[in-house]
Nucleic acid binder design. Sequence first.
DNA 1: CGTATAGTTGATTAGTATCAACGCTAGTGG
DNA 2: CCACTAGCGTTGATACTAATCAACTATACG
Lengths: 253, 253
Amino acid sequence: MNLMPPLDFEAPKADRDIDPAAPPCRNCDVVREIAFCADLSADEIKRLASVRCHAQLPAHFTIFREGDRAEHVYSVSHGAVKLYKLLSDGRRQIIGFLFSGDMFGLALDDGYAYTAETLVATQLCRFTHRKLDAMQGQMPRLERRMFTMTVKDLMSAQEQMLLLGRKTAREKVATFLLKLSRRAQVQGLPASPVALPMSRADIADYLGLTIETVSRTFTQLKKDGIIGLPASGHVVLTDEAGLKELAEGASAA
Amino acid sequence: MNLMPPLDFEAPKADRDIDPAAPPCRNCDVVREIAFCADLSADEIKRLASVRCHAQLPAHFTIFREGDRAEHVYSVSHGAVKLYKLLSDGRRQIIGFLFSGDMFGLALDDGYAYTAETLVATQLCRFTHRKLDAMQGQMPRLERRMFTMTVKDLMSAQEQMLLLGRKTAREKVATFLLKLSRRAQVQGLPASPVALPMSRADIADYLGLTIETVSRTFTQLKKDGIIGLPASGHVVLTDEAGLKELAEGASAA
DNA sequence: CGTATAGTTGATTAGTATCAACGCTAGTGG
DNA sequence: CCACTAGCGTTGATACTAATCAACTATACG
């Protein structure tokens, strides 16, 4: 099992590096379309902006920890974030990788249910739950949007349950690569040379495997001509149809 | 793996047995508190009631299938329901067991993402998405309530990811029993002789195990004096503290 | 250029799946 | 009313996937 503790053990001072006067996100065009700011009127965006903070965080920065009092909701402007839960002996399950436009930090009373950490240098939007709640009823489209995004997250989580409970290592890796590829396309990036901003350990903890099994599976898929591994951190989907078959569980080779 | 197809292969005629004039739920007192009808004003409940259907369904009845056009949202009044996803070769993952007050059937465009089937004779409330959408903005507390319930479902799904990806068979079963026990308490039932309305196959497909492993694990927990198995379908939590330790991953015996 | 970290590969083990047989329970028909 | 049968659950023997342990290589960093 994995004994990797969070990489950043400083007191969780999320406020450091959060500058209310920081400029808005870079790739706004794409993000505006998919983030929870989508669908809003100009007026609504203005009101929302008044309770928003931007932050530029370095890679491997702990945004908050499981159990921390849940004060903020976040939206990824640019970069990548992982969310994970830990067992007492250090076993870790990554419950999601987030990219531009994704939202996280929703919680009910009991504090955050997971730890959030940047994978790479990341720009975030931050909103306080309190202020959002105070605007409750005034921005129906925002509430609606957050609801829809949460339903989508739930369905994605259910897909992941199927993966974790019933798929083989090979199927898990295939599904993972396809998911990353589709996510890249949503961002307007090419489907095929997919960037892997996360480590093998992260992939393993996301798929319920060990580092070694992930590595072996990559190698095997490469040997079978299904993927290419040109450079560390990048995968070419040579045979996307083959990957899809694998991902859906066409059990025989 | 499991080759269990849905038990009911009739065309999905959910309308059969759905009688708009049927009486409202039995254990309303409890259900009203926890269902999504909670928090509503009398007026809101009245309006909601006007778009609601009740249904009394037999055990092992398929309510809808993965991929069906998503027309309704459901709330369990009385009974128990399982939700599951299938791989093409029949492998199955149960993504949730639902009881009184639980909601299901939310979907985005692409049809239901899972199949829903009763475990026992079950009474349901049904609402059409269309009519609920039409009331959008008019019943903020209802929307809020559905949102909160979805967030709760998401957090529960994330817990289950940790279970499926990182827990051992023993830990999985312990976690499952505790979860059932806590759910029973919410319904005002005793914590300890817990009813298991689902088969070993269902439990296995919920925990990402096989029937045999579930059976063996129950036997082992009984030998260790942690649980009692007085009759089929019931479990006594003899050593709740021990179960909790197990569930949290206190790895050593 | 040297060291630390991440990733790959190999050998072995362990936990759970698979295959198989058997017992129990409940429903059925004589 | 009771033997019969079907399905569920349990138990045992064996197989196999992925984990563990270990060594080595490649990459990044000071």
